[in-house]
Deep mutational scan, measured.
Amino acid sequence: GKRLNIQLKKGTEGLGFSITSRDVTIGGSAPIYVKNILPRGAAIQDGRLKAGDRLIEVNGVDLVGKSQEEVVSLLRSTKMEGTVSLLVFRQED
């Protein structure tokens, strides 16, 4: 696979993607993946982020050990017109 650095500018329609966690172990944390890209928002305008990408970092914060809720609040904490920096891991087909 490969790592991608993606910067998304948060506009009025938001970042435009949803996340999910897979393989949750009890008391553990699961990897966070991009669930889908919404028809409006920064992600589809940028065009690089894809469903199935694994989020590794948000704005330089390592997501290991973070819950899905914590990751959502990290993403939401970005101000309007601010930039969210994502490091994602993509499995090659």
Rank of each mutant, 00 (worst) to 15 (best):
T20G: 09
L15V: 04
A43F: 00
I6H: 00
P31V: 07
L87A: 12
S29M: 10
R48W: 01
L74V: 05
Q68A: 09
L63M: 13
T20Q: 12
Y33C: 05
I32M: 08
E13P: 04
P31T: 10
G47L: 01
G47R: 05
L87S: 13
L63E: 01
T83P: 06
E81V: 05
G11H: 11
D46Y: 02
G47M: 02
P31K: 12
N59W: 02
L49H: 01
K35N: 07
I32K: 03
D93C: 11
E13Q: 09
R76Y: 15
V84M: 04
V88K: 02
G11E: 07
G47Y: 00
G27C: 14
Q68P: 11
S73D: 10
G1V: 07
S21G: 06
P39F: 04
G1L: 06
S77C: 14
G41F: 00
F89S: 14
D93A: 09
L38C: 06
T12D: 10
G1Q: 05
I26M: 13
L75Q: 01
S67L: 06
A51Y: 04
V64W: 05
F89T: 13
K35S: 12
K9N: 11
G65H: 07
V72G: 10
G28R: 06
V71H: 01
S85E: 10
I6G: 00
N59M: 03
E92F: 08
R54T: 06
I26S: 14
G1R: 05
L8I: 08
V72M: 11
D46S: 04
L75S: 00
V61L: 08
R90I: 00
G41K: 01
D93R: 09
V64I: 12
T25K: 07
G11K: 06
Q45W: 08
I56F: 05
S18P: 01
G41S: 02
D62W: 04
N5K: 11
K66W: 14
S29C: 13
F89W: 12
E81H: 11
R48I: 05
F89E: 15
D46N: 03
V61M: 10
D23R: 06
T12S: 13
F89K: 10
Q68R: 11
L75A: 01
E92K: 10
T20N: 06
E69T: 12
K35H: 10
R3I: 15
K79T: 14
T20R: 06
T83R: 10
R54M: 09
V64R: 12
G11A: 06
L4P: 03
T12A: 13
E57Q: 09
S18W: 11
V88E: 03
R22P: 15
G1C: 09
Q45S: 14
L38D: 07
R40L: 09
K35C: 09
K2R: 12
G1T: 11
E13G: 07
I6W: 00
R48E: 04
G1W: 06
Q68S: 10
Q45V: 12
D46E: 02
L74I: 11
G16V: 04
G11C: 10
A42N: 03
L15T: 02
I44G: 12
R54G: 04
I19Y: 00
R48Q: 07
E70T: 10
P39E: 08
L38M: 14
R54K: 09
E69D: 12
Q7S: 14
G28I: 15
G41R: 00
V24Y: 14
Q45C: 15
I37E: 00
P39N: 15
G1A: 05
I44W: 07
D53K: 00
M80S: 14
V72H: 14
L63K: 02
F89G: 15
E69A: 08
S29A: 14
M80R: 11
G52M: 04
V72P: 02
A51T: 07
V61I: 12
L75K: 01
K2T: 05
V61C: 07
Y33P: 00
E92N: 15
D23N: 13
I44Y: 15
L8H: 00
L15Q: 01
A42W: 03
N5G: 07
I32W: 05
L87M: 14
L63F: 03
L86V: 04
S77I: 11
V84Y: 03
V88H: 01
T83Y: 12
L38K: 15
R76W: 09
R54N: 08
I6R: 01
G14S: 04
E57L: 06
A30Q: 04
G82L: 07
T20F: 06
K66F: 13
I44R: 09
T25Q: 09
G52N: 07
V71G: 01
K79P: 10
R3E: 15
E81A: 12
F17C: 03
E92W: 14
Q68F: 07
V88Q: 01
G52D: 03
S21Q: 15
R22C: 07
A43T: 01
G65N: 10
V88S: 02
A30W: 03
M80N: 07
R54F: 05
L86N: 00
K9S: 14
P31H: 12
K79E: 14
I32C: 14
L49C: 01
D23P: 13
L8M: 11
P31I: 07
I56N: 02
S67M: 08
V84L: 10
G16D: 04
F17L: 03
D93E: 08
Y33K: 05
D23G: 13
I19S: 01
Q7C: 11
E70S: 10
